[in-house]
């Protein structure tokens, strides 16, 4: 089963709408709550990153029998140094993002913690693609 949700860059009033929709859908599909929580926390951090940094993006969720595979893809400035971005505390977020309770350099490490597999690719000036794999039969 595949689902797709759009993310609007820069619009903090809608940040979380896509993750919320995914959460509802996973609940309806009776995915175990601890798995839902890990995935949506990673997803929400990713969605906030898209809203905070990119121009627009989307979340694609693919539910398979043994795993949930999510792609968060955006058109935006990209990440010049992914290793640096993965370090706790490293952030390029604006003051506006910090005022929303984010931008302390915790997002990507938090996503890694909550994913069974996390893969990030990025091209400066074009955008970023984050792939999250969550296993269903741990």
């Amino acid at each position: 089963m595949k689902f797709k949700y759009e993310i609007e860059g820069g619009n903090f009033s809608k940040a979380g709408n896509a993750s919320s929709a995914v959460k509802k859908m996973l609940k309806q599909l009776n995915v175990p709550p601890p798995i839902i929580k890990r995935l949506v926390v990673a997803l929400y951090e990713g969605e906030v990153n898209v809203v905070a940094h990119a121009w627009n993006g989307c979340i694609q969720v693919d539910i398979e029998p043994h795993r949930i595979f999510v792609i968060i893809e955006d058109e935006g400035p990209g990440i010049p140094d992914i290793d640096q971005a993965m370090q706790e505390g490293y952030s390029t977020a604006s003051q506006a993002v910090r005022e929303m309770g984010f931008g302390a350099g915790m997002g990507l490490p938090n996503m890694k913690k909550n994913a069974d597999e996390l893969n990030i690719t990025s091209e400066v000036g074009k955008g970023t693609k984050v792939e999250i794999t969550t296993l269903l039969n741990e």
Binding site: A15, G16, Y44, M100, G101, A104
Partner: peptide
């Protein structure tokens, strides 16, 4: 909110001075 999202604790009260939509979204997630 990123610190809140690192937790894995049930029956939790969040005490915060941040009163915006993301506080509620964070609690939801």
């Amino acid at each position: 909110m990123s610190d809140v999202l690192t937790l894995d604790t049930d029956k939790l009260v969040l005490v915060t001075g941040l009163n915006n939509l993301q506080t509620i979204r964070t609690a939801e997630m």
